[in-house]
Design a protein around this nucleic acid. Structure first.
Lengths: 234, 234
DNA sequence: TCCATTTTCTTTGTCGACAAAAAAAATACA
DNA sequence: TGTATTTTTTTTGTCGACAAAGAAAATGGA
């Protein structure tokens, strides 16, 4: 239970502490560095970040608002468990949002959106080349988030971001089991999506978005069913 | 600027304060009792609720997380403005969610869901009969929220709830202008939706959900275009 | 040894106070 | 009178402390 982090007690700007804690904790949760169900201690965090409990608490309240942590009244706070029972519902929503955001991007994107999207794709491609699983997962989410932003619908975009966040945890689970393998054809599929968006081909963007989403869902599904099969000979 | 509320300084249970403040403030914002853009003073709220700033602050952080208030760093906190520019995007998302949630309710509802839905519909019907605009708006949102809950997709449900909340503000704006008129055929449309859900008629539920949503969108649209026409003779 | 009760410990929820930041008011100067 | 600078006021962000609520440990009796 020892804390092996470089306790940086640097002078911070007033108001920046909450964002610092929030961002870091969010990343640690989504990368499964903090495992689902593990306890979160305010006092310990306060010591780690060199600040009082108040800003820590605010960050935790925000994380709780996004469902990333759960708070038992008067008792412990913990990292939310991954809701396996709710996974069909999750995948349903995820695929729909893949479709909708890609479709809208084809309709509403502007020239500079494509620059940003290509930048994200480059980062994703680099992460794949480097076989960096964590980076792949994060940059993949960033790529689709950029697509969603180009769709110019803030409601879909924020909802999609939330779904993608939750997805990061599941994908991390996947790559934790099957150590850092290459994702099959995601890079190419991303290129196809970019092309359809740029061509303003709405129907094609819709189709690709749906196919891309279903592809990911299937991949996770395969993992889960495979994990169920233990070494039992019949 | 005087505060004319019955300052109830009753003993509260530990931990209940935040929810109290959050719920009340949320209702006041959505009912436009707190007008968009108006300032929110933590100290004043603390005095009003007879508690310290800490729980008030937590409630505000949660409201900010839902986008109902905006916080300028180090400076004022205020009720979020209604984003008129983003309304097409909002309506797009709203109609889609009407469709999806109604469709899923037809697929996945259980017997006791219908009881709750009928209860909400009764409350809505009563509010219409009483010509109570605020109650109509709130109970209408509750009705569709119950439909969404029956659809058994927590992701859609929470997203839809957020959209319906924002919609309460716009509808309130509507009924504020055209003082407390009867909504045309919403009660009947709700009945049709209930019937389709009960019959598990997915296609019909989808169609009705879409139509219901578009109907509301059109109605708000009519108001807005009408408001644009001032007393100018050509 | 097992169970019920009491005591201690841990962690949260709330409080009052104070310092930083920005705005508003006051002052000085032309 | 108008503008730049200083001072005051207002409001937020952070802190340390303490009390409440459970959980865990200790105690006592059979």
């Amino acid at each position: 239970m020892t804390n092996d982090d470089s306790s940086q007690i640097t002078e911070r700007k007033r108001g920046s502490g909450v964002k610092l804690v929030y961002d870091l904790l969010r990343d640690e949760i989504l990368d499964l560095k903090l495992s689902p169900g593990s306890a979160i201690d305010e006092v310990q965090l306060a010591a780690r970040f060199g600040m009082s409990r108040t800003p820590i608490r605010e960050a935790l309240v925000r994380l709780a608002g996004e469902g990333l942590i759960e708070t038992l009244p008067n008792r412990s706070t913990m990292v939310s468990n991954i809701d396996f029972l709710g996974m069909p519902a999750y995948f349903d929503a995820l695929v729909l949002m893949y479709r909708v955001t890609t479709r809208l991007a084809a309709q509403h994107h502007r020239a500079d959106d494509l620059l940003l999207i290509r930048e994200r794709q480059a980062e994703f491609s680099a992460a794949v080349a480097a076989q960096d699983a964590l980076a792949m997962i994060a940059t993949n989410a960033d790529f689709h988030s950029a697509i969603a932003a180009a769709g110019r619908n803030a409601y879909y975009a924020s909802f999609f971001d939330r779904l993608l966040g939750e997805g990061r945890r599941m994908l991390r689970l996947y790559y934790q089991s099957y150590e850092d393998r290459l994702p099959p054809r995601y890079v190419d599929e991303h290129e196809e999506i970019i092309a359809a968006v740029e061509a303003r081909n709405v129907a094609e963007a819709d189709r690709l978005g749906k196919a891309h989403g279903e592809q990911i869902v299937e991949q996770i599904g395969r993992l889960l069913t495979r994990n169920d099969r233990l070494d039992i000979d019949l």
